[in-house]
Every structure is written in C-alpha cells, then in structure tokens.
Design a protein around this nucleic acid. Structure first.
Length: 219
DNA sequence: CGCCAGGGCCATA
DNA sequence: TATGGCCATGGC
C-alpha cells in the first residue's frame, strides 16, 4: 500500500512527507523522563496546555519530585493540562514503574520491548498510544506510534468514514524499521497535520495529494 | 458561545 | 466487541 512508511517505492507516504519537511527527530522534551510525563499530560489535550503544565514544575520535573510530591500539589501543578485528577495519579504510577529499573533508560532498553509494552499497558491511565509514545520517544524502541492524527490521516488516505483500529493502523503503516525512522515518521505526520490534514481537509498543496483519495476528490 | 485537542476507563448491551 | 458517558483545561 502506498501508505506504508518504507522508502522502497520512492513515492511512499514517508518519502513524500520527508521531501517536504525533512528530518524532524521530534518530541518536545528535555529528557526521557519528561517525554514520559508529556505522554501522560498530552492525552486528549492540546500541546500548548501541556507546555503550561510542564512550565509549572519550574524545573523540578523529576522522578524523585513526582514520587515525593503531595498528590494535591501535583494536581495543582498539572492543572492546565486537564484531567488533572487522573493524570496526577498516572504520573506517580508510571514513575514508580520506572523506579523498578532504577530510573535508568539503559535498564529499560535491555528488556524485550513486548515485556515493557505489557507492563506499561497494565498501568492505569496508559493505553496503546501513550505506551507506544513512551516506548519510541523515551526509550527508542522501534515502534510505530498511532495517534489521532494518524487515524485521521488514514481516513483521508482511504477516503473512509470510519477510523481504522489502532492495531490495523499500526500494521498498515508499520514495517521492520529502525527507531530513528519511526521517530521521524510520526513527527512528519504530526507536522503535516498542522497545516493540511485538519478536521476539515485542507488538501491544496498537501505533499500527500498524489496518494490520497480525499485529495483526489477535492483538489 | 460551542467545539475540540497528540486518550483511557468504565458501564452497558 | 463496540458504543457512550465521563474526566477538565485553554485556545479559537
């Protein structure tokens, strides 16, 4: 399928996006732990609100701070990100899990990815999207991250009314690639979504117009 | 004003 | 398995 992110055909989804936006290597965070926290905070929440929440840590965002913080204080800090009651608890839960590996990225990376994925999914408040974001952007496991942008893009590409499931989307886009390519692939999809693949399609000038059934109708 | 943003949980059928 | 209600804030 043309949507696959592999680079073999020269006009794959990845190629077309890369030609427009280049290397992104992206997740707006200062550290792997901040990636984890951001993955929780951004659930169904605009990233601008996540930035406000992270700023309210005033540089103290660390596993030790989150674990020792009073639950009420933590909720107040992350309030701008919304769903603060649930997210505060999830932050603590995720951080406690990380503590089992000594808060050390290499210790997590030494484990089988499916073991870590299963452990993350077992935590309350962490589903597939959050887990895969953490796996890829905090620990650099080779995983294709499916999010709302990805599912919407897939609907556009197929000109479909109903969204694919998470697993379907992951299988359709995924290939056996390295973490750096998955990293950039998701970043490119998000970047393109900012201007072209909005709630109301803006297909003029979209680099994917040539492989997109929705664009074929509207352009 | 209403809509919705880089979800996930839970109850219900 | 598949919907629907719910959680909460801030930008537009």
């Amino acid at each position: 399928m043309a949507g696959k992110i592999n680079r073999q055909t020269g006009n794959s989804l990845y190629d077309l996006l890369f030609a427009r936006y280049g290397e992104r290597r992206w997740w707006p965070a200062e550290s792997p732990y901040e990636v984890m926290a951001g993955a929780i905070l951004t659930q169904n929440t605009a990233w601008t609100n996540v930035e406000k929440a992270i700023a309210r840590f005033e540089g103290r965002l660390s596993p030790q701070f989150v674990l020792s913080a009073d639950a009420g204080d933590l909720m107040e800090i992350i309030r701008p990100a919304g769903f603060f009651n649930r997210k505060a608890g999830c932050l603590k839960t995720l951080t406690a899990w990380y503590g089992q590996y000594g808060f050390a990225v290499p210790s997590v990376r030494a484990q089988p990815v499916q073991k870590i994925r299963g452990e993350l999914l077992a935590l309350r408040g962490i589903g597939k999207k959050t887990a895969d974001s953490i796996l890829l952007y905090a620990f650099e496991f080779p995983i294709f991250v499916v999010d709302a942008y990805t599912l919407r893009l897939l609907k556009r590409l197929e000109d479909s009314e109903e969204a694919r499931s998470y697993d379907e989307a992951q299988a359709l886009f995924g290939a056996d690639l390295d973490a750096a390519l998955y990293n950039n692939a998701h970043a490119l999809i998000v970047e393109n979504a900012k201007t072209h693949c909005r709630a109301k399609p803006v297909c003029e000038g979209c680099p994917l117009a040539g492989i997109c059934k929705t664009a074929a109708k509207t352009v």
